[in-house]
Computed example of a mutant assay.
Amino acid sequence: MGYNSIYKENLFAGQNIIVTGGGSGIGRCAAHELSALGANVIIVGRKVEKLQQVASEIEEDGGRVDYFSCDIREEDNVKSMVKKIVAKHGHVSGLVNNAGGQFPAPLASINQKGWETVVRTNLTGGFLVAREVYSQSMSKNGGSIVNIVADMWGGMPGMGHSGAARAGMVNFTQTAAIEWGTSGVRVNAIAPGWVATSGMDTYPPHMKPYILSLKDAVPLKRMGTESEISSVICFLLSEGANFISGDCIRIDGAASQGSRVWPLPKAKNSHSYNGFHRATTPKIFQQAETSPDTDNNS
């Protein structure tokens, strides 16, 4: 059993595609789907153990994969890593700028170090990787970059540091699409809404009720799957999106379009797509499914 992608076989055959943050969550899923579609996937992250695990999974499934440990917040490290990737694998056709991280906190309690750490991870790091991939490879042969941001439209209360960084990444996407377009490089972004990933299990216990209630604010009355995010990433990297650049696609079940004055009744006819054969339900939702007090009509 392999990845059940909606796209044609060998869509990315012969292409080298980098996925940052490839050791877990959306990055792991995208790496699997891209590999299943014929790409030589290079996953990047800070924790070697996670990268090795995902690489082992992809190899077991018959895919081609390599991995590099790198702190993308450090300019010299990024330059060196991209140089090694290009020397080893050749031209980089695609980049999935997925690495990121944040912690929940109101603005008034975020100190300078915490603010700068999140901005460096979610904005500066993505810029550095994209710039080096462009400068060392795509400027010569073209390519496609997909930046992963977040549902930060209208503010991001409780995670203002991440919201500011993600908004900056959207503007970077628009600017890069203009500056790099003449080299045949397309730059787009996607903004996932509430997606059931392993990252949900990293938040403190007091946020559990909030996380379990997120689906109630989505018109489709459910959370998204990693596969539903990965399929859009694959589309934007594909030749079918060759005239799309400088855009940001919201993948959030219309949650960011919601209004408090419009009530959301129970939904129907909304079914999730999950083609990822190695996907697992986050522990927080597994526990909720076994609780008699939890409403699971989603």
Rank of each mutant, 00 (worst) to 15 (best):
M1H: 09
Y3I: 11
Y3A: 10
S5G: 04
K8Q: 11
N10G: 04
V19R: 08
G21Y: 06
G21A: 08
G21Q: 05
S24P: 01
R28N: 06
A30K: 04
S35K: 09
A36P: 02
A39V: 02
V41S: 00
I43C: 06
V44N: 01
R46L: 10
L51F: 05
Q52R: 14
A55D: 05
S56E: 13
G63F: 12
R64T: 14
Y67A: 09
F68N: 01
D71K: 06
R73C: 12
E75Y: 08
N77W: 04
N77T: 13
S80T: 09
K83Q: 11
K84P: 00
G94Q: 03
V96W: 02
G101S: 11
G101Q: 05
Q102F: 15
A105G: 11
L107G: 07
I110K: 10
I110M: 12
Q112K: 13
G114L: 08
T117A: 15
R120F: 11
T121L: 05
V129C: 11
Y134S: 00
Q136W: 03
S139C: 04
K140F: 06
K140W: 02
K140D: 06
S144M: 02
A150H: 07
D151P: 00
M152V: 14
P157M: 08
G163F: 03
A164H: 02
A167K: 09
T173K: 09
A177V: 02
W180F: 04
S183Q: 03
G184T: 00
N188E: 07
A191R: 06
G193W: 04
A196M: 15
T197C: 07
P205A: 08
H206I: 14
M207H: 12
K208Y: 15
L214M: 08
K215M: 00
D216M: 13
L220G: 04
E226L: 08
S227N: 01
E228K: 01
E228F: 06
I229N: 01
I229E: 07
S230F: 00
L237F: 01
S238Q: 09
A241H: 08
N242A: 07
D247C: 10
C248Q: 03
D252F: 03
S259L: 10
R260M: 12
W262P: 07
W262Q: 13
L264E: 12
N269P: 06
N269C: 08
G275Y: 05
H277C: 08
R278I: 00
I284S: 13
Q287V: 14
T290W: 10
S291A: 13
T294W: 14
N296Y: 15
N296C: 13
N297F: 01
N297D: 15
